[in-house]
Write a protein that binds this DNA or RNA. Sequence first.
RNA 1: GGGCCCGUGGUGUAGCGGCCCAACAUGCCAGCCUGUCACGCUGGAGAUCGCCGGUUCGAAUCCGGUCGGGCCCGCCA
Length: 592
Amino acid sequence: MRTHTCGELRPGQIGQRVRLAGWVHRRRDHGHLTFLDVRDRYGLTQVVTSAQQSPAAHADADPVRSEWVIAVGGVVRERPAGTANPDLATGAIEVAVDELEVLNPSRVPPFYVNEEQEGLDEAHRLRYRYIDLRRPQMQSQMLLRARLASSIRRRLEADAFVEIETPSLIRSTPEGARDFIVPSRLQPGRFYALPQSPQVLKQLLMVAGYDRYYQLARCFRDEDLRGDRQPEFTQLDLEMSFVSERDVMETVERIVLDVTRDTLPDRPILATPIPRLTYDQAIARYGSDKPDIRFGMELVDVTDAVRDTAFRVFSDAIVSGGAVLALRAAGCAGYSRRELDELQDVARANGAGGLVHLAVEADGTLRGPAARFLDVAAGGMIEATEAEPGDLLLMVADADRPRAAGAIGRLRLEMGNRLGLRDPNTLAYVWVHRFPMFTWDAALARWDATHNPFSAPVWEEADRLESDPGSVHAQQYDIVLNGWELGGGSIRIHRREVLERAFRLMGHTTERMRDEFGALLEALEYGAPPHGGIAIGLDRWAALFADQENIREVMAFPKTQSGSDLLMGAPSPVTDVQLEEVGLRLVDAAAR
RNA sequence: GGGCCCGUGGUGUAGCGGCCCAACAUGCCAGCCUGUCACGCUGGAGAUCGCCGGUUCGAAUCCGGUCGGGCCCGCCA
């Protein structure tokens, strides 16, 4: 049907007879001469019909419109002098068409494929995703994702990792995200769950001796959606045996950097080897466990500097054991009331009671609503923050230090955006590790795994599991890219007795443990090697590579925030027969 | 579960109590055009302003509800 693609022809083929097939990208009709740009995923080629030279083909081109699918036959020729198009890879040539076949006409498309359009309603794009995916930008994003996945596979295969598929119909477990459940027809009243991740399965594979496993695994979580969260998504899931935390981090780091350079050879990577921060360092310096290290503007602890002021907002927080944290926004002393209010809103929206702002005047004094209370501390604050005239100091005080850090960490990102410090071209990977093993859940009055309940404690700290769980760290590591949590993993607990202790601390009874994690617990008794691994979000990785803020942009058929597939119309009701087969009856018939 | 924002010809926007049976650009249709590449020129069609209800002499515009979409908090081991 075609001899070449639409991105292929060059002056070297001049004089050759060719056939192209594709979509009509644009039509320029000059009456006795018609230009058609024919497009496929490889590119665009201009073809010409002439009433004089090829009357039949010219007549056939008459009804052809945007997005019609056509095949053309003709001879490649050089464009007349002065009419070459340097913006087009195929712009030096054109095809003089003597034969044009309409393979399929198209209705007028619901939006433009042939030009970029700002503000196009995303619901509309999703409703006609097959057209949206024709847009050159979407095609390049899908192809980038494919290159990334391909690079991952090649790199892992070269490193002796074995790809093993795990089932999508598995057993529901509590903990973590809500499961999607699938009713069983063969056993009415029983349900499968779709995996939130192949976590337990890959650990069983380690017990089975496949000491380097990987999978591009589809995962499902029935939780509320966000721009970076879909109900189903893809993880690069990998697991290794006979490894320490350091081994895994070093192996993964080499893979990540190789894949990055392979997929995006021209994008600068901020720092290699990938910097490592402990969780405590990340919180203290950036106010986040997923810091964007493309810019500095680190948080400054001014608690000591303001300890003796009469400013109640600060002193109350300090007396309660809290902290006062500051951010130095260089050159922002001139911020307007409105800009300061917006920053105030950012602080409040992220847990701060308020935001104290002080501008540094030319004479080194401070100006701001709270300045008169802070006179005595002015020198100390300026020294601690290294502030200079013209700078703006932003401060958050809270009895709860992590809360203050979180709020000011978000302000840091906001200022990074406002000051244009988050260079979209740079890729800044960073490791965050040594997380606290447990977080106290005040509502449930129990300890909860900070990340993954299977994560091992730092072995030397394991004897404090019961006596002082809050002080135990996990052998856990997150890899962060440009402020996004890209992935996380850990060394797993490979001894039954330790895993049971950890579960018990999280409030599991022995019966529940045996019921829900029986297979894993038992497997650990049959020669489970020390092991650990990581899971990296492929969608997020692709989105960051494609410079998109939304993973929907790198997914072919994503769902909306309410979980709808606007193209296929899912979720949908099912028939009474289908319900009956699986032994279900809807409680509220009206809900259908 | 909660907060905020959006919904006007096919598409993107303007209009934000009467001047609007709605404007602009583009797309679409027709005619003309032999070197365009966002081709050009001329003409034309196309919207009960998401839906329901209310306020008002009068609603695209104000209010309430609802549906759809987005962002955020909670949630996401």
